[in-house]
Amino acid sequence: MRLVHNSMHDEVAAQLRERIFAGELAPGSFLDEVQLAEQLKISRTPLREALKVLTAEGLVRHEPRRGCFVNEVTEQDLDEIFPVLALLEGRCAFEAAQHASDADLETLDAMHQKLQKQAKAKRINEYYVTNFAIHEAIIALAGNRWLAGVIADLRKIVKLARLQQLHAPGRLEQSLSEHLAVFAALKARDAEGADAAMRTHLTRQREALRELARAQRSRLA
């Protein structure tokens, strides 16, 4: 199907982004402009503009005289990104505690009840969806577009790692406990407590991913 939207390169970028996250365009793979242009039925001009967008987001890297490749996320990248994410999402929780209305807290309460049910039933995929929605809700409650924008960009890089930290032993229960701690601080309007609890949550996510990667390397050894 031919793309006809005015900002065609944004649509192309969105399609390529989805394919990267789905693993169809694997980390380290070469992005053949001729082939991609034929697949998308577009000229190479909007494709190149789309690749510039993805390069700016960190999903793609451009190598002079070689072309574009899907970026690969290293353990060092994750070690550097997660502390930043922890600080940023912690600040969101801080501001959310100051701004959340009673109605907002009721909505979050319902989301956490759903999260508890999913954790108890060990429905990990559904838990991921609710978990993400809760993070997004807290970011929205902070009402800080600068924080939201930087967090969204960093999350795209982390998503490239394609690691599911909830599969680490005991992580599902631990994650739920951390979420409830954040929510308890939000309900108490304890901004500093919400900040600290969210930072702990993100720090432990990184620890779980590290343990999962270590286990995967051991299996392959």
Rank of each mutant, 00 (worst) to 15 (best):
A97K: 05
A97I: 09
A100H: 06
A100T: 06
A100P: 08
S101M: 05
D102V: 10
D102H: 12
A103K: 10
D104N: 13
D104K: 08
L105N: 06
T107Q: 15
L108T: 08
M111V: 04
M111L: 14
M111Q: 14
M111P: 00
H112L: 14
H112C: 09
Q113F: 10
K114M: 11
L115T: 01
L115P: 01
K117E: 14
Q118P: 00
A119L: 04
K120H: 10
K122E: 13
K122G: 02
R123P: 00
R123N: 15
I124Y: 06
Y127C: 10
V129F: 15
V129I: 15
V129P: 03
V129K: 15
V129H: 15
N131Q: 14
N131P: 04
F132S: 15
A133W: 12
H135E: 14
H135D: 12
I139T: 11
A142F: 06
A142G: 15
A142V: 04
R145N: 10
R145P: 05
L147V: 07
G149P: 00
V150K: 06
I151L: 07
I151G: 01
A152L: 07
A152Y: 08
R155E: 13
K156N: 10
K156V: 12
I157N: 05
I157A: 11
V158H: 05
K159Y: 04
A161C: 01
A161P: 00
R162Y: 06
R162N: 08
L163N: 02
Q164N: 12
Q164A: 07
L166Q: 02
H167S: 11
H167Q: 07
A168Y: 03
A168S: 08
G170P: 02
L172T: 01
E173T: 04
Q174T: 08
Q174W: 07
Q174R: 11
S175D: 08
L176G: 09
L176P: 08
S177Q: 12
E178R: 06
H179D: 04
A181Q: 10
L186C: 05
K187L: 12
K187I: 07
R189E: 04
A194V: 01
A196C: 09
A196Q: 11
A196P: 00
M198P: 03
T200P: 00
H201N: 11
H201K: 09
T203F: 03
T203Y: 05
R206I: 02
R206S: 05
E207C: 00
A208S: 08
A208Y: 01
L209I: 15
E211R: 10
E211M: 08
